[in-house]
Amino acid sequence: MPILEARSLSKRFRRPDKKSGFNGALKHLVQRKYKNFTAVDSIDLEIDAGESVAYVGPNGAGKSTTVKLLTGILKPSEGTVRVMGRDPHTERIANAHDIGVLFGQRTQLWWDLPVEESLKLLKHMYRVPEAEYRLRIERFDELLGLGEFMPALARTLSLGQRMRADLACALIHAPKMVYLDEPTIGLDISVKDRLRAFLRQLVDDGTTLLLTSHDLADIEEVCDRIVILDEGSIAYDGPISELKARYITTKAVHLILDGPADLDALREKFPEYEWAAGQAASEAVATYETVRSTTAEVLGHLTARLAPRDLSLSEPDIEDVIRRLYAGELAK
């Protein structure tokens, strides 16, 4: 039986339909007009216990709204949600005992108090026994380095420290179902790596996870399944490995050459690659299909012939896949 089940889930908002300028403002003051906007459009979603699901899509696709519907914050306009057999909106308090939520852009720390105080209040809220609380804090310290900023005021923390503290807040009661809405937004590489390792450990321990992120590495390192959302509807739902095999079939090598990049000459010399100009005049970008050549082969081939001053490798990100998916370049 799924731990989370959403059927025909929709959410519509009413937005003011206001013309710009002073006249528009005056007119709206007298005669209010609104437009309906569908943020989530008839979504069906099932998540089994222990699954780690990435829920991704471009900005404004409805990711955060879905998370708010699934956590009971918002009431659906249509459709139903059951989380562990409960309606998260009407049974909000009972549901909240079993879930953990992190919104990357909103903190749950009390801004003007030490981190420790926020965690202690959460301990009371979730009725965490003292011995378990201490054990979890020790574990968070080990995995997230929490101890170094436990006595610090929340407002004095760096973004990475704040996110780690928020993650501890979301998990202090060992929830069965965890929702993480952009947990690595704005973090540097080392903090991201640390968080991802921690989340992977959480999933391996059996916690069910729904993660929204714009970062492909978050998704790849933490999740096994991906749900792609666009304009409120699900565009893809399946294993990440399948998505990559189906859609991410190219990689690109960015080469910094000694002089200006002559794309015509490069196309003539290396017709097996697709060539494009880079950001600098001396940069050329060679795109190759991963089914035809390995990265080692391509790098060996290009460095031997062109002797570039520098090079880097990139692959299309999830947003690029979505863009191509909806532009009709890729079969849905």
Partner: peptide
């Protein structure tokens, strides 16, 4: 500020 969304995920009245 929308921080009420955090409050609503807590098991309290």
């Amino acid at each position: 500020d929308g921080l009420i969304s955090i409050d609503l995920t807590k098991p309290v009245d």
